[in-house]
Nucleic acid binder design. Sequence first.
RNA 1: GACCGCAUAACUCAGUUGGUAGAGUGUUUCUAUGACAUGGAAAAAGUCAGCAGUUCGAGUCUGCUUGUGGUCACCA
Length: 883
Amino acid sequence: MSETTEKKATYNPKEVEDKYYALCEERGYFEIEGNKNIQEEGKDGKIKTFSIMMPPPNVTGSLHIGHALTFTLQDIITRYKRMDGFKTLWQPGTDHAGIATQNIVEKQLIAEGTTKEALGREKFLERAWLQKKTSGGNIVHQMRKLGVTPAWKRERFTMDEGLKEAVKEAFVSLFNEGQITQNTYMVNWCTHDGALSDIEVEHEEVNGKFYTMIYKFADGSGELEVATTRPETYFGDTAIMVHPDDTRYADIVGKEVLLPLTDRTIKVITDTHVDMEFGTGVVKVTPAHDQNDYAVGKRHDLEFIKVFDEKGILNDYCGEFAGLERLEARPVIVKALENAGYIVKIEEHVHQVGHCYRCKNIVEPFISTQWFLSEKIAENSIKETKKHNNFHPAHWINSYTAWMDELRPWCISRQLWWGHRIPVFTCDDCGHTWADKADEPDGCPKCASKKLTQDPDVLDTWFSSALWAMSPLGWGNNGKLPELYNDSDMEDFYPNSLLITGFDIMFFWVARMMMMGEHFNKGQLPFKDFYMHALVRDETGAKMSKSKGNVIDPLDMVEEHSADIIRFTLAYLAVQGRDIKLGAKNLDQFRNFTNKLYNATNYLQLNHSTFKDLNEIEVKTPLGLYMQSRLGLAVEKIRTAIESYKFDESAKTLYNFVWNEFCDWGIEYSKADRESIVELGAIFKETLKMVSPFMPFISDHLYHKLSGTTLEEGESLMVMNFPKAIQRDEEAEKLFAIIEESITALRRAKVVIDMGNSKIDKAYIKLDAPIDTEMAKPFIQKLAKVIEIEFVDEKVADSITDVSDNLEVYLPTGEIDMTPIITKLTRQKEKLEKEIQKLNGMLNNERFVANAPEAVIAENKQALEDAENKMAKVSTELDGFVS
RNA sequence: GACCGCAUAACUCAGUUGGUAGAGUGUUUCUAUGACAUGGAAAAAGUCAGCAGUUCGAGUCUGCUUGUGGUCACCA
């Protein structure tokens, strides 16, 4: 560190962030009534409300960059609405994450040399709860580091006492409506995690092999070549099929073939499912282990032979191979077939194979008995969704509805222990099956027997998540945990105002909340708006992954920079519909921005120790009026941007206002008018209120610094009003536009004579239209570094000129080289010629004049006039040199 | 294969009812002056992927092409 940087005071976020956060949380600012004193009524006379549900992260998980993005955006909008007088609920919670959590606990047990089976269900669940308790607080504490402000006092867990009730409420009701049924069906089966829904299977391209094997006719009349990628399943073949129109095989239809290495025979059948062009045109049919063959089996009433069990262990149908695991068995079986001469060839074959999204195991199509939720439940929600497209970005509705239109029954049962136990009971005596909200029903409703058996499975984790738009509002909670919600919550906060989430869980989560929300709330969809945020990638645009080692840990970033900087960076980069490339450079830009804010505060305080709020003073100075007007424009733009979820635009506008307007011009001007500084201080404090949702810590810190107060003894910006509309001052804006143009022109002219940064004695300005020159003079002199400005009506002799839109400036010259000036003027002339040509072309086009709106024509006429005037001046200037 | 994106200055990207292209970084030149060198000033830099169409007018709308990414569905 150099000497100079050591001397300079800079903002130290570490001294501020944790302390301020704890203070604000303690004071209950994050809760529904945290902003009670500024809550406002809406048009209907009721308090305005805003609600947003946090997508509950896995209780055992830890914070990653995607979380940082989604939570930051949610926090910005929540803070904005809170400051804007809304009664605001940002509902936090964590998800029990069935498979993920169960796998963690199972791994622990294995490490301890035991298994869940040895432990038993009850003890296992105790362990899982212990795991939840010990690691569950982790992620919510990490979230606090980001400075996010959900209503922590209402934090829920998807398996807490109240939400358990909600799940049972939903299940029992759907069961009784006949929407939930138990069926034996071919499902996606992970030999580790059990049944999976369709979207829990990830299809990935793998380099496999294509085995062509021989099936001999039972009558000894020859053989058939059949190709397969999964030779180990042939023990489950119950037919061979060919296309009915395939003349090559017409004579063998109905014949019997012998399965290799067994004594079982199967028939050759025909089915149009066969693609004659592919492979040999002969297909083995394994109805119990292939989706398509399952359908063929149903059509042809074939036998369904399972060749392995739930764990993938081959059974007696596989003869000598029984006891082997399905994947391990493949090479063994192929070897045996090869030895016996049944393999014709083995080719390389690239194909798609389904993998479990949790454990990456190869998923098998497998027949089993599961609970399904009918796709019909979604019908109304689909219709409603199509009526209004409230997706941001809008194109997501296409993917959404395309998927919804193809919806199939949702397999909701999981062969796990950790989760919501399926509330279905069967009477051991009379066999009656029913769904019950009671954990231990009194008895069978048919025969009153006390001997009951509950379904051993649990529900898909997404079943409880599907209720998330309403269950934390008390829906179906059956009076449990009443301290976590209010009776008016459903009325106040359903439908939720907004859902912010990643598109990767659109089908897992959004779709399910839509169907459940609509179903249980008289057709009312659960969200008014949807915001699908982007994916955060590394600097080069690559997806972050542990294996690539390019993961950016948001907590490291907070440690290295600050929560404020991370938040502002993410917001600034959050363009709708484009992924975010996050690199160190981005963070630097906004670190500099915090420094700018800090130094602007320093400057103000060099002149006055404290400042009042804008509404406590009357702005009178021309500069104050100008800056206030510019603030008004910024307020308007920032509000519009946030309300249309354009986080990037709102952040950018804020950044530009602070830096390019307030600091570069406002502060610089104020050096020529000390009177205005009290006003600028108030305007800056107002600006900090707009910074607050994005960078809550530094804004609060600087606000109190400028006010001469402390957060400890005062209120936070987060519960003060976000700036409201401010009347623009056209007069002041016009005036300062001319002042700014004069300064820029003078600076440009000074560069030409190599006086770029030096103070000069004298300069002249000729204005096209009059302004209050006495008022303008000090500003121009100060910022252009000219000791004396004189306003003139004619060109000044022996001077160089800069021609701009509304004025000309002249710098007196001695004996200097005029070449660079001539070059500059010539270039300017060429540009103007082009522009005039273009505008003339346009205005001479009869059709343009006939069709274009008047305003556009007038605008272009004016532009032409201006360009021609400027052209005349530039030409005159040039002629002066030539003569 | 179907659907949905993206292609704008050297780089990363804005550009919301069609009306003479913007920012940050980088580059060039000047600059240690009492907010800030994590700063200030000035400047250079774009046939908006290509082709065609609609229009008085297209980065913006339509179609096609090329490149690139994603989602879904797939042949045993």
